[in-house]
Nucleic acid binder design. Sequence first.
DNA 1: TCGGCTTGTTGGCGGGGTGTCAACAACTGG
DNA 2: CCAGTTGTTGACACCCCGCCAACAAGCCGA
Lengths: 203, 203
Amino acid sequence: MVVEVSVEAGPRRRLEPDARREQILSVAVRLFGERGYAEVSTTDVARGAGVARGLVNHYFGTKKDLYLDVIRVMLTVPGVAITSLPQGDLPTRADAIVGWYLDVVSRHSRSWLAAITAGGMAGDSDVDRVIAKAIDDAADAVLRAVGHESPGPALHAMARSYVGLAVSTASEWLRRGVLTRAQVHRLLAATLLTMVEQVFPDA
Amino acid sequence: MVVEVSVEAGPRRRLEPDARREQILSVAVRLFGERGYAEVSTTDVARGAGVARGLVNHYFGTKKDLYLDVIRVMLTVPGVAITSLPQGDLPTRADAIVGWYLDVVSRHSRSWLAAITAGGMAGDSDVDRVIAKAIDDAADAVLRAVGHESPGPALHAMARSYVGLAVSTASEWLRRGVLTRAQVHRLLAATLLTMVEQVFPDA
DNA sequence: TCGGCTTGTTGGCGGGGTGTCAACAACTGG
DNA sequence: CCAGTTGTTGACACCCCGCCAACAAGCCGA
């Protein structure tokens, strides 16, 4: 499908490097978010920004480098307000972290979901590294929420597994509409509790 | 990296369509399993099969169509021996299905993992559809193993979530080496039990 | 005001991947 | 042995990517 974008083809404008880079990046975030990695050409990005294709390479190097920056932008949307941790018992804190996660995912960043399910290319080592770091951060947040401040490697691994459950469940909830938020909440809270109480002691 | 493949460039051989198609498909399965989708060109597949590139398109249409067939092959590797379901109580059956799953994943098919994590392209609607069906089948197997013969849509959705946990945990276990098989087994068995006992009744 | 300089920006070149199709040739039946 | 069937090939046209020399927009000193 050819999308006509109304671009004023007026005379060449010079922008500050930061501004131009930001502009191109925002276009790339939108396009890569809508379609996949393979479905978007650097020509599309350039056209969307009203700019020559060579300029995209000038600012971002290769197409994959541009995509890495796009993923970083999508993945750093949340991670801001994990500061508000209620100080109750374990079930209370588990409930709180699950509710917070569902809020974040459902409200202003299904782009985070789109990115973390590798919306375009997985198997690539660089992309995997960026995504792996995002999962690691999420696992850290979960561990801190349930009281483990300095966890060992095994605990980290188990927490990453749980994050995988959270991602797949949120994806299931948002993409298809069959589960209610309450059901999703109970699912994630209950499994988190049994993991903390029965599985984490193994580590 | 250029890989030299010893291909006898002998005189042109005619094969039966089924045989040729099978041969090309097997080469494609191997290559797409080793490297990703983008890293393998149809020229590579053709060269690996000792065949002209046009023939690949003749049998499989587009490159993505070929990849879809490859994914179907990788994902249908298991699904054969789910017949041996022990008839004990719930913990016994949960243990059995988890052990069977870990056997399948670890033994002859990390290619299954490579495929279900969409080793090259996710976000594509056709690829997603094939993967979604594989997850659905796995969810069916889990539900049958724990005694739910005719589950409703909500139960199906919850089972898909659990399969997501199984996939992410297996990936964690195989790719990094930090968890032991025993730990992975206990993790999946315990969470499956609490899901059956505490979460499934919500549906 | 005007030339020169810095540097953001462009357009085109070479290489590679993909889909298509007419021509070719390996087998088969008469 | 020959014609017909059909598996197979090679090349053409198109698109995308990384690269780079040339171009010009904006700034500054004379």
